[in-house]
Write a protein that binds this DNA or RNA. Structure first.
Lengths: 113, 113
DNA sequence: TTCATATTTCAATATTAGTTGAAATATTAA
DNA sequence: TTAATATTTCAACTAATATTGAAATATGAA
């Protein structure tokens, strides 16, 4: 993961609405949630939500699938793991750190695949 | 650390210039770097740098101290640790994750104190 | 004090981001 | 086919961000 895609991911999360959306999707897990229900549970207007979902999808932090007339969004845990890895791997000027393991949600990732 | 301060920290890092500045300070470690040298090594104009340093300072990702007529900036590792903690602690909907330890740069933190 | 250095502030400008409501598109049900 | 539901796109607007160069401030040296 390079500088630009990390900036993209950080920018996607650096906004109240999108952080709320993302955390909702993280909580609900790999099964995901349809756009309408995200709109309802976060109080974000549908058109505004659509705008934010594009940002989150573009940064690869969420993925979507179609089911009937619903679009189901779900968190992409591996992107978050890569971002956390990037933010920690460059610390301490190459000197060893005490603990830099940042793998998260491996259980959910396994359920997805 | 609450929602708003996490958004603030993410927003501070979600910008090419500031991510470059921050990583420079992370690499140089607790001894820090004067504003002029950051400007020089990143190629960011002094007035623009000053703007970005305020953002990074406001979000508590960097701290500054005065030494003679220099202002020395250094990375605040504990804020980064808190942000990483926040982003991982809420994952998996309360279900246990394989690994969520995200402590980084404890060595440097110890050197600072 | 006067000058040089280091940094910040300010004004002007350009770009980007976020919200709203209406219209458009797509899918399913009657 | 017609109507209802789910989501996206669009235009208009407002607010926030980023950059530049000039001026201001502050510290230290001659």
């Amino acid at each position: 993961m390079n500088n630009t895609s990390v900036v993209k991911a950080l920018a996607a999360l650096a906004q109240e609405s999108r952080l709320a959306i993302y955390r909702t999707l993280v909580e609900v897990g790999p099964s995901g949630m349809p756009a309408g229900k995200i709109s309802e549970s976060t109080g974000i207007a549908p058109s505004s939500l659509s705008f934010h979902m594009k940002e989150l999808t573009y940064s690869n932090l969420v993925t979507s699938r179609h089911e009937s007339r619903f679009v189901i969004y779900s968190a992409n845990f591996s992107t978050m793991n890569e971002v956390l890895g990037f933010l920690t791997e460059n610390c301490c000027g190459g000197n060893p750190c005490v603990s830099t393991s940042t793998q998260t949600c491996l259980i959910n990732e396994e359920q997805v695949s």
